[in-house]
Amino acid sequence: MSKYLIKFTKCSIIRYISHLDLMRLFHRAFKRSRISLTYSQGFNPHPKMSFAQPLSLGYTSVGEYLEFETLKEYSNNEVMERLNLVMPAGIKVTDCWKLKNNNKTAAALVCWGSYEITCQGDFDQPPGQAVQSFLQQNQILIQKPQKKRKEMTEIDIKPLISQFKIIEEKQGQVKFLVVLRAGSQANLNPELLMAAFYAYMQKIYVKEDVSIKRLELFDQTQKALYEIHER
């Protein structure tokens, strides 16, 4: 039995499939690649495979991670090659690590995520200044729907933002880089941040004008997941 962590990209139109669809996609890809995964025991065995952090439908990413357990041992390169041979367009495995047994799972490690956000359209006021003053607020309150109950609750997202800056500004388009809490403890969806920022600027948030790309996932100390594992 061997454990691996792979890093992969989810690009172009395949961003329009959901997290569940992606799970099924990998499940089938492993079967096609003839890399045999170990299965859980019990009445309803399922392959041992888990993603570090789900990606919202519609986002692209160059920093997705998946862990899995195989029956046989393969070299890191072999895992990558075999998987890439059978992947549909848009998914590409870019790195692979063999894990030691005592590693914490990737899902448990994830604490932060970085995103590149591209907004189409012009801003009335210089967005750079707006970002500054937006972040200088004591609290950044947003309405968030409750998972179980349907009512909205107000939360302060300021502690969930580590970085929020402009990396490119040109006619009709602004690119932001943000680092936000991610994972099971606390999580901030970049769309919620952008909606709050647009509201702050008194601008209407149009979903189709904003595209989001995840760049990387980090642990508590903001060390990227790929830096954590030795080759």
Binding site: Y16, S18, D21, K207, E208
Partner: peptide, 13 residues
């Protein structure tokens, strides 16, 4: 596609 339910229906590929 970002405005519809199950956009995966329309993408092909």
């Amino acid at each position: 596609l970002s405005q519809v339910e199950k956009p995966g229906r329309y993408i092909g590929g």
